[in-house]
Amino acid sequence: MVLQRHGDRGQTVVDFDLDTVAYLRSDAGTQTLLDVDGYALTDNTRVSDIASIRRQFGDHASALIETVLLRRRATTKFADPSQWLFTDDALQQATAQPVAEHRARRLAGACVHDVTCSIGAELAALRTSARYVVGSDIDPVRLAMARHNVADVVLCRADALRPVTRDAVVLADPARRSAGRRRFDPLGYTPPLDRLFDVYRGRDLVVKCAPGIDFDELTRMGFDGEVEITSLQGSVREACLWSRGLAEPGVRRRATVLDSAEQITDADPDDCPVAPAGRWIVDPDGAVVRAGLVRHYAARYGLWQLDPDIAYLSGDRLPDGVRGFEVLEEIGYSEKRLRQALAGHDAGAVEILVRGVDVDPDALRKRMKLRGTQQLSVVLTRIGSGKASRATAFVCRASR
């Protein structure tokens, strides 16, 4: 039986059962999915398309439509998800393929057990680099999907908190969603993060977590390894915890920017002065900021901080491949002054970056009422502390 519910985005979500997965994996299901994929299923055609699919395929229609739509959504994470099976929650939490491949490279040559394998996203990357791979999950439906998605990997049904392997590196991706809703407390993960640490204490362990996880909370739970923050396509994707035996000696925090194949760690130099703005302002990648490695990034590229507590950096030369903001004018911030400055530079459109100032960029942009022809940027931040603190706006031209 296929059940439906409403997801956290208000959409109808199908809850699959084993019989439905078996049908989708069959030759008949495979062919029918190809037929359903021929429908546009856009906002303009969805009602008529769904009615037609239901007339043709009856009780299977909901699962077929859901699978086709999930495969289309999955193209943002996978190079070719056209043959994969997903649930909505599993796709939302599935690791993007480039991120999974990066992690697999760090585990090259190892024997790895993914104890929360879900529909197999991590296994698909690991099978090409690890010496041996096994996956397990407690959810029989996701496990059945994984048997379809990564048919060449050994799989078994098991509780992640009841070890069924020895010696292998343990990879875990605790569920951070329940019925489509996010969980932010690591003690509320499934399984809870502290229980994972306890059960696998003394073993090599890799745990994928939400990027906003509290580093101090990890320390309180006894974690003493490396926290790697990874970004892809300008977005911070995850925090990955590497136990001490898998971490690089002396490294506790790492920022990995997959777009540029760049890594910064807390073992790198962090000599970074604080000084007024030079020619360029740089907003470091979110992984660098989240990992607390702004000073280390600045030291690598000869940049400096505008303020010791703000992540914006400045320099007279822009690092290769980095988007920066060339300073045209610096003003003490007020809406009136900013409007006058933008008018003086013939601004007709503006992006607004804000740190340390309580301003809504979208609302401020509308209030500027720009009528010029130039595309400009505004970097709005707070400089100084205490009575010397001041909101400052930099009118800039972006490098790209």
Rank of each mutant, 00 (worst) to 15 (best):
V2G: 07
V2A: 12
V2T: 14
D15S: 07
D17C: 14
D17Q: 06
L18D: 12
L18P: 00
L18M: 00
T20F: 06
A22S: 13
A22R: 14
A22Q: 14
Y23R: 07
S26Y: 03
G29V: 01
G29I: 01
T32K: 12
D37C: 02
G38A: 02
Y39F: 15
A40F: 04
T45P: 01
R46C: 04
R46H: 07
A51D: 13
R54Y: 03
R55P: 00
F57G: 11
F57K: 12
D59H: 15
D59A: 15
V68A: 06
L70I: 05
A74G: 06
S82I: 02
Q83E: 13
F86P: 00
T95P: 05
A96V: 10
Q97P: 07
P98S: 11
E101V: 05
L107R: 07
L107F: 02
L107I: 09
A110C: 14
A110Y: 12
C111N: 15
H113R: 10
V115L: 10
T116Q: 05
T116D: 09
A124H: 14
D139T: 03
L143R: 07
A144S: 12
A146I: 07
A146E: 00
R147L: 06
R147T: 01
R147Q: 14
V150D: 09
V153R: 01
R157Y: 02
A160F: 07
R162K: 14
D167E: 13
V169I: 13
A172H: 10
A172K: 03
R177N: 10
A179M: 13
R181N: 11
R182S: 13
P186I: 04
P186D: 05
D194V: 13
R195A: 15
L196N: 03
L196P: 08
R203M: 11
V207T: 06
D216C: 02
R220S: 12
L232E: 04
L232T: 07
V236E: 08
R237W: 00
R237K: 14
A239L: 02
L241A: 05
L241F: 09
W242L: 11
E248C: 11
V251P: 08
R253S: 05
A261P: 04
Q263G: 05
I264E: 06
P269D: 08
C272M: 04
V274L: 03
G278E: 04
W280R: 03
V282Q: 07
D283S: 14
G286Q: 10
V289H: 10
A291I: 04
H296Y: 10
H296F: 06
Y301T: 00
D307T: 00
D307A: 07
D316N: 15
R317S: 13
G324L: 09
L328I: 04
E329N: 10
E329Q: 14
G332E: 15
S334W: 01
E335F: 00
E335D: 13
A341T: 02
G344P: 02
H345L: 10
D346W: 08
D346Q: 08
V350A: 09
G356T: 00
V357D: 00
P361A: 08
L364Y: 09
K369E: 15
R371W: 04
T373A: 13
V378K: 01
G384N: 03
S385E: 12
K387D: 15
S389V: 06
A391R: 12
T392H: 07
A393E: 02
V395G: 11
C396P: 09
